[in-house]
Amino acid sequence: MKDLYYGLLVACIVTLFLRIRQLPSYCKWLLLLLLTSLGTQVIQQALSVPGVHAYFVFHIYQPIEFILLCIFYYEIFDKRLYKRITWVLGSLYILSCLVYYFFRPQSFNKGDFTDFTLESVMVCGLVVLYFIQMLEIKEKIELKHFMKFWLNALHLVFYGGCLFTMGFYYYLTKTDSLLARQILNINHFLNLLLYSGYLIVFACTKAART
């Protein structure tokens, strides 16, 4: 599964890199996001020793991921109010992470998914905001070729699905910790689904008009 994961991630990065000039400008933030994700995985693997996972790498990556997503959403939102909401959410998220790990330093190198759960909630909120904005578009759009719709649909499936697994994970840790760990495999499948979707969107989107 790891090989498939890395394969899809690299394929997304290469496809996006090759088509970056033909695609809209907001795609560069997704390229940065994917590169950061790949870098995080590689660093985490390199720093991990048998029996000890370098979870802190993920806890550093989460805010970076969310900030890049916020910049992406800032670019695709047209309304000033929505842009402001994006910045507020981004600032709130960083503040929340800092406060959380300041008061719970022991969680910084543990498999604590609080930051990821919070990020998932906020991204789902941004997706909903974008769908609301989309309803107000006053021009003819062919949905099947509308890149922003598909990217947001993928984000909804991925982060919505992750919220579900996080919820079940916290429930199951109290009753069956083995099953709880197995539940996290759903996140891996969701990652594969996300990157497959990204690959299709980046490869099949028509060149943006200049």
């Binding site: 919505g160 699905g161 579900f164 079940f168 199951l172 069956d176 099953l179 759903i186």
Partner: peptide
Amino acid sequence: SSQDIIIVIIAGTLL
């Protein structure tokens, strides 16, 4: 454990 697995599968599918 079996019950939990079933619940997870059903809930995941429904979601």
